[in-house]
Design a protein around this nucleic acid. Structure first.
Lengths: 205, 205
DNA sequence: CCTACCGATCGGTAGG
DNA sequence: CCTACCGATCGGTAGG
């Protein structure tokens, strides 16, 4: 029984590791080819697996795509939000978020820049679970930004309309992502960082 | 000979009209499904034509995709640039461009919002003629914006760094497009318009 | 601009 | 997690 339990646990761990390997490779492929360019054949080949082995743990392709979106959102959180976890809420945290955000735009954990921006554009006109998932990811990130803006305002550290600042900061990041990925502007991340901090500075009392 | 010329001209006109019908339908399909979601079967069916008839005038699928990109760029120009053609260069033109731009974001000639933003995200990691074409479209539009910013500055109507303003305005438009298309925020276009004009106003001497 | 067809690849499944 | 297979669809072409 001990042996059997050990074996089962080991199998479950291995199965979980396999799932993670598949999702990780799926994130990489989706970053370049899009979520609808995530095809099972090439994904299986890149992993040295069969198509059935790749799609099995997720039921079908859409199940895998959903896990890819979730994993990409986790990677965004790890890169942009977590580094400032111990920074004081409000304006200090906002400044730390800007720095991590622009660092993320420049040295992206994805091969093709901001996965969230790319998936937002790809999915915004295609109703379904994938679009719903991206809607959640984007609106939670914007809500998180807005929360720290309002905290900064309550502390008397910031003026202006919170939604304006959310749109400006978010827009600066999207524009920088275009400058880096499409236009090949290597200075764009630092440029965006300077712009974002200037917007904040301008709104201080 | 006159008859023959007449017939040839009529045929050429009809062929041209067919090309335009195909490209127009291709723009609609690409706006929702992406340029790599532009498939010949469904496109042909939506036109009541055969696949061969749809792809023939363009050689192959990529030739059609290129024409779709060109046509979408023309539609952007017609909606955003042309309405201000008779407005004075510099700050007046810049203000008119902002108004038309936000109107374009709200009442888009495409079924799925800004085609330029969507295609930029879809193509930025996929080298080839399509990416090159989008690079051209985006850098020419940004250059046009920058030109009128520098004219306004030379006239003493505007302060600040031109590239900063290009990125901020462009970013505000991309963020508004996300708010409209993904988040369903019907006020986003007017919000962006107010933000853009406020940025301009803030940079006046 | 059509029909009829090509090989390749798609997502998915049966069975082990 | 594999092999072997399914029907459907892909882009493209020959011939008219």
């Amino acid at each position: 029984m001990f042996v059997k339990l050990g074996c089962m646990r080991k199998s479950a761990d291995e199965a979980q590791q396999t799932r993670e390997r598949i999702v990780a490779a799926g994130v990489m492929q989706s970053s370049v080819e899009g979520l609808f360019g995530l095809t099972l054949g090439p994904l299986a080949e890149s992993l040295g697996m069969s198509k059935a082995g790749v799609v099995g743990p997720f039921g079908n392709r859409e199940g895998l795509q959903l896990e890819v979106v979730r994993q990409a959102a986790d990677m965004f959180t790890a890169a942009v939000i977590e580094p400032s976890a111990t920074t004081a809420d409000g304006l200090p945290r906002l400044r730390a978020l800007i720095d991590a955000w622009c660092e993320y735009l420049e040295a992206s954990p994805f091969p093709n820049g901001c996965f969230v921006t790319a998936a937002s554009c790809e999915l915004d006109g295609r109703p379904g679970p994938l679009r719903d998932a991206m809607h959640d990811v984007v609106s939670r990130w914007r809500g998180f930004l807005r929360e720290h803006i309002t905290i900064a305002q309550a502390a008397g550290d910031l003026r202006g309309d919170p939604d304006d600042l959310v749109s400006i900061l978010n827009g600066a990041a999207m524009s920088a992502n275009q400058e880096i990925q499409l236009l090949g502007d290597h200075a764009a991340a630092k440029h965006a960082r300077r712009i974002m901090h200037a917007c904040i500075a301008q709104l201080q009392p």
